[in-house]
Design a protein around this nucleic acid. Structure first.
Ligand code: MN
Ligand code: MN
Ligand code: ZN
Ligand code: ZN
Lengths: 145, 145
DNA sequence: TCTTTATTTGTAATTCTTATAATCTATTCT
DNA sequence: AGAATAGATTATAAGAATTACAAATAAAGA
């Protein structure tokens, strides 16, 4: 459940000297309740009713704190703003070219790719990233109408 | 050779109604002579002696023209500025976490990943991107000293 | 050469993100 | 509990990358 891993995230933070504030907890909560890999601005907007005075800097600050603590991953896609994922176990993402939707995709790691890259380039390979792009079922349905 | 594909690129542009200007040719030339996947600013700086009055907007404008014509690919890595690749045939990139160097890496397409993603998510998959990260031989040598 | 229209240039605007300093508050110490 | 400490929040300015815009320029064809 999301609430279980939220509790885990809170205790990870408490184990370092990170204080628990209402804003911080709300950001964590939103991340764990959302499956949509939100942007900093998504988070900011979703909390502006509960925290009318919250600064967008607070969102960014906390996302960095979470990243440093290893409880959140940042997904960077270049052209637009970063997205944040509270699922830190290894997985890939399938992204819709039309609406931008991001869906988790589990696949065994591409070890042989890393091994070959190491042999061919002489690099000491540490990891890789992969995203798969296409059109989601909803957008396909739309375009057929 | 680079000059052969440069000629190709020029004729692709001429086949649409894209005019050949000195600035445009110089940007193309630099892209084809460089193996380093330069940023817009790299290109701009490399040409400021030959074209002291060139605007950085011209570099961006032309990179977009090249992209639209299919003779240049944009590589987006999120945190920093885009890089541009005049090798448009399919290949992957190995990137050094220390110095940022980008090296081409040829590998057969990951068709089975795309197929599985299609089955699992219901997306109509079009393509994917992958980058492999590690430490380049030079940086490894440095750190051992 | 003349005309048309794409292109360049200089600058302002935009977007995303970070830096800064003052204020506030969670936690600790007495 | 009350005060001290140090971390957190806020508001705002600054930064970097990129794009928009309009005026000036120049490529290509007639
Ligand atoms: Mn995910
Ligand atoms: Mn390349
Ligand atoms: Zn979609
Ligand atoms: Zn390196």
């Amino acid at each position: 459940m999301a609430s279980a891993s939220l509790q885990e995230a809170v205790s990870v933070l408490k184990s370092t000297n990170v204080r628990m504030t209402p804003q911080r907890h709300a950001i964590l909560e939103f991340l764990h309740s959302s499956m949509s890999h939100p942007t900093a601005d998504d988070i900011y907007k979703s909390l502006e009713e509960r925290f009318p005075n919250m600064s967008v800097a607070t969102v960014y600050n906390n996302l960095r704190v979470f990243k440093d603590a290893g409880i959140v991953k940042e997904l960077t896609y270049g052209d637009s703003s970063s997205r944040f994922d509270c699922v830190t176990s290894d997985h890939y993402h399938v992204i819709c070219n039309d609406c931008g939707k991001i869906v988790d995709f589990h696949y065994p790691g591409l070890d042989e790719v890393e091994t070959l890259a190491e042999h061919v380039t002489g690099f000491d390979i540490e990891d890789h990233r992969m995203e798969i792009y296409g059109t989601c079922p909803e957008c396909t349905k739309m375009s057929k109408q």
